[in-house]
Design a protein around this nucleic acid. Structure first.
Length: 618
RNA sequence: GGGCGGUUAGCUCAGUUGGUUAGAGCGUUGCGUUGACAUCGCAAAGGUCGUAGGUUCGAGUCCUAUAUCGCCCA
């Protein structure tokens, strides 16, 4: 976000010195961080605000280091060249999860791979990214493909560059797709990378960090990849290597943050060997120690963990937790340490420097349930608050966050961080589009609360949807619920004012009328039902039933009847909280289950007009 | 390619062990109300619950197929 703001002013992060840039980020954090907490407070969240934590806090940094070092010592963190997703604009690696794919129109380019030693003969090959030809190190065909069988083991020539590369046979090749022959660019395509490893192919990186062509691209060096695609294709056409272009729908990988095209590249990065962690996280849900609500998400969770790949945790950014690794400039030792070292642990040289990279933000977030409580110290807070009970979060970060908390929780504490994960859907804008800082279509809850009140918004958000399903935020709905909040308020006023008029001390328990008995029975049923629904995480249904009861039965009927009863005079138990020993109170009763749904009306409102104890009869 | 979700009243959506005339909000129509509430009340119109089969005494709810929209993963 900060980089975007700067971009509007024509500044890139790389134009600023690092300190200046970090300063800007802290400014942003102060501004928006406080706005977010302000929103949450206004929504009436009952939090212990003294325990607020921020990812970059001192205590969390300590936990991050501890976690990194432990994983490293256990052999679960390693550094090495691997296929990663490279974001050219941000100039950093991003994880698989941060890449989104979009279908876009493009072309399938057909061209000739000339046989090196058989003049005039060629293998036709199709590709969607011609510029990657510069990094080709093989052509693959299916082992049983009769068309190309005779060429396996021979060499072909890379167009323009003239490098000799082998023709190999691999069952991965789909005979029906394109020409049935596949060019292999192990350094710039994940599938080719796998094939390249299996066949011990050379990997030729052809891209610089800004996705321009590097020196391996010979005369194309320095061109942007898209420009190179055009130029190379023209040059190939000039020497009769082009067969045809065919319109084709591409699946383009784009960065979730910036939106620009992500390039698969070989790069040296830090990774977490994730399999052992994933196995435990998987087992605890399978064996029921942690439950996911709604249940259908367990399948999604399984599927992800069962097919997980090592997690690339290093980012070439300036903001974040620095990787706690130092390199010795004299003996090349790698020092991984909880404390900043001053000398090389091997040769005691003082010529050491820290790894420039920072950690993926989700690395620290994954430690959240215990890093915020002082871990690795066995603090009283940690003992009391860990593990917690219910983790409530958006379904969209099941992988990013929930799965990582599960994995890290089990790895570092041997206990699941929570017994239940409740996933809500997304609050979408009126058109059903995801709200995001990037898109700028965010509806500020503060504005909605100014217009309709906190309770109206709370009630709408909690009641207006069904677990795990997305909700379009409709102002009409907020308006309707504002009317409900108003109804509660007025009903409360009526009851309270009549309580004040009632005899101060009724001596005998008054006779119940039919209406009294009816509303009491209904209330008991409602309380049972709503409690059951709350326990089953069906907040929406609970809210609807309470709404229905309060408005259609309590307000429309009981209060109307009560008016008649009051007019007759005498003691009426349900409106007489003051009767000694009475635990009945029809107003507070429906207010109790309403409290989590709209706590301004049920707490702040009545409290103002009426002593608190009247609302504690349940 | 695999998986998940939606498809219910004019609009936006509820409806979780299958059970009497399928619900709400908004909108529409009519009537009413000067004491909790006009940010209101009462009433009405409006639905073959995507389609086609199946299971069952009974299906919006379960099964199979299919259409269509959306999301996730590869």
């Amino acid at each position: 976000m900060v980089e975007k703001d700067l971009k509007k002013q024509g500044i890139s992060r790389h134009d600023l010195v690092k300190e200046k840039f970090l300063e800007k980020i802290w400014e942003w954090k102060e501004k928006y961080g406080s706005r977010i907490t302000h929103q949450i407070r206004r929504l009436g969240a009952s939090c212990d605000w003294d325990k607020e934590r921020f990812t970059m806090d001192e205590g969390l940094s300590k936990a991050v280091r501890e976690a990194f070092v432990r994983l490293y010592e256990k052999g679960l963190i390693y550094r090495g060249p691997r296929m990663i997703n490279w974001s050219p604009a941000l100039r950093t690696a991003v994880s698989d999860l941060e890449v989104e794919y979009s279908e876009e129109p493009g072309f399938l380019y057909y061209f000739k791979y000339m046989l090196a030693d058989l003049p005039g003969e060629f293998i036709p090959v199709a590709t969607t990214r011609p510029e990657t030809i510069l990094g080709d190190t093989a052509v693959a065909v299916h082992p049983e493909d009769e068309r190309y069988h005779k060429y396996v083991g021979k060499d072909v020539l890379v167009p323009i560059l003239g490098r000799r590369i082998p023709v190999i046979a691999d069952e991965y090749v789909d005979r029906a797709f394109g020409t049935g022959a596949l060019k292999i660019t192990p350094a710039h395509d994940p599938n080719d990378y796998t094939i390249g490893q299996n066949h011990n192919l050379e990997m030729i990186n052809i891209l610089n960090k800004d996705a321009s062509i590097n020196e391996n691209g010979a005369q194309y060096a320095g061109m942007d990849r898209i420009e190179c695609r055009k130029k190379l294709w023209e040059d190939m056409r000039a020497v009769d290597l082009v067969i045809k272009e065919q319109p084709y729908t591409l699946n383009v990988p784009r960065s979730q943050r910036g939106g620009e095209i992500v390039e698969p590249m070989i790069s040296t990065q830090w990774f977490v060997k994730i399999q052992p962690l994933a196995d435990r996280a998987l087992a605890s849900v399978k064996e029921g120690r942690t439950k996911i609500v709604p249940e259908r998400f367990t399948k999604v969770y399984y599927n992800w963990l069962e097919n997980i790949r090592d997690w690339c945790i290093s980012r070439q950014l300036w903001w974040g937790h620095r990787i706690p690794v130092w390199y010795c400039d004299d003996c090349n030792a790698i020092i991984v340490s909880r404390e900043d070292p001053t000398e090389c642990s091997k040769c005691h040289s003082h010529n050491i420097h820290q790894d420039e990279d920072v950690l993926d933000t989700w690395f620290s977030s994954g430690l959240w349930p215990f890093s915020t409580l002082g871990w690795p110290e066995q603090t009283p807070e940690l003992k009391y608050f860990y593990p917690t009970a219910v983790m409530e979060t958006g379904a969209d970060i099941l992988f990013f966050w929930v799965a990582r908390m599960m994995m890290f929780g089990l790895e570092f504490t041997d206990v699941e961080p929570f017994h239940t994960v409740y996933l809500h859907g997304l609050i979408l804008d009126e058109k059903g589009q995801k709200m995001s800082k990037t898109k700028g279509n965010v509806v500020d809850p503060l504005v909605v609360m100014d217009d309709f009140g906190t309770d109206a918004l709370r009630f709408t958000l909690l009641v207006g949807s069904t677990p795990g399903n997305d909700t379009n935020l409709s102002i009409k709905k907020v308006e309707a619920n504002r009317n409900f909040a108003n109804k509660i308020w007025n009903a409360c006023r009526f009851v309270i004012s009549n309580l004040e008029k009632a005899p101060q001390s009724a001596q005998v328990k008054p006779e119940w009328t039919l209406a009294d008995s009816w509303i009491w029975a209904r209330l008991k049923t409602l309380l049972n039902d709503s409690e059951r629904l709350f326990e089953n995480y069906q907040y929406g249904e609970a809210g609807r039933q309470i709404y229905e009861f309060f408005w259609s039965e309590f307000a429309d009927w009981y209060i109307e009847i009560a008016k008649l009863q009051l007019a007759e005079g005498g003691d009426r138990d349900l409106l007489h909280c003051k009767y000694p020993g009475s635990r009945h109170g029809c107003l507070p009763a429906p207010a109790a289950p309403l409290h989590p749904l709209c706590n301004r009306g049920t707490l702040a409102g009545p409290q103002k007009d009426c002593p608190r104890d009247r609302f504690q009869t349940l």
